Amino acid sequence: MTNESSIRRSGSQQSDLRHAGAQRPAGTTLPAWLCETEHYRPLADRSSFIEHNLEHLGDVLAQIGDALPVSHSPLDRALAAVSPSLRIVGVLAVIVCVNLTRNMLFSYVMLAVALVALAVRPARLIAAILKPTLAVCAISLIVALPSVFVGQTSAPVRLVVRAFVAVSLVIALARTVPWNRLIGGLRGLGVPDSLVYVCDVTIQFIDILGRSMMQLLDALRLRSVGRDTRKLKSAGRLMGVLFLRANTQARHMAEAMVCRGFDGRYHVRRERWLTWPNAAYALGVTAMIAMAVYLG
Rank of each mutant, 00 (worst) to 15 (best):
Glu4Gly: 05
Ser5Val: 07
Ser5Gln: 12
Ile7Ser: 12
Arg8Glu: 10
Ser10Lys: 03
Gln13Trp: 05
Gln13Ile: 07
Gly21Asn: 08
Pro25Trp: 09
Pro25Cys: 08
Pro31Cys: 05
Arg41Met: 07
Pro42Arg: 01
Ala44Arg: 07
Phe49Ile: 15
His56Glu: 10
Asp59Met: 01
Asp59Cys: 00
Ile64Met: 05
Gly65Gln: 08
Pro74Leu: 10
Ser83Glu: 10
Ser83Phe: 00
Ser83Lys: 05
Val96Cys: 12
Thr101Asp: 03
Asn103Phe: 13
Met104Trp: 10
Leu105Trp: 08
Phe106Arg: 08
Val109His: 06
Met110Cys: 15
Val113Gly: 03
Leu118Thr: 11
Leu118Cys: 07
Pro122Gly: 05
Ile139Cys: 15
Leu141Glu: 01
Ala144Trp: 00
Val150Arg: 11
Pro156Glu: 09
Leu159Asn: 12
Ala166Trp: 04
Val167Trp: 00
Val170Ile: 10
Ile171Asp: 11
Ala174Asn: 12
Val177Pro: 01
Pro178Phe: 08
Trp179Asp: 10
Asn180Trp: 11
Gly188Phe: 03
Gly188Ser: 12
Leu189Tyr: 06
Gly190Ile: 15
Val191Asn: 13
Val191His: 14
Pro192Phe: 06
Val196Phe: 00
Tyr197Trp: 14
Val198Leu: 15
Asp200Val: 11
Ile206Tyr: 15
Asp207Gln: 10
Leu209Arg: 02
Leu209Gly: 09
Gly210Leu: 00
Ser212Pro: 08
Ser212Tyr: 11
Met213Ala: 14
Leu222Phe: 07
Leu222His: 11
Gly226Ala: 04
Thr229Gln: 01
Lys231Glu: 02
Lys233Asn: 04
Ala235Tyr: 08
Gly236Trp: 04
Arg237Asn: 02
Gly240Thr: 02
Asn247Met: 02
His252Cys: 01
Gly264Lys: 02
Tyr266Gly: 00
His267Trp: 01
Glu271Asn: 04
Tyr281Lys: 07
Ala290Pro: 06
Leu295His: 06
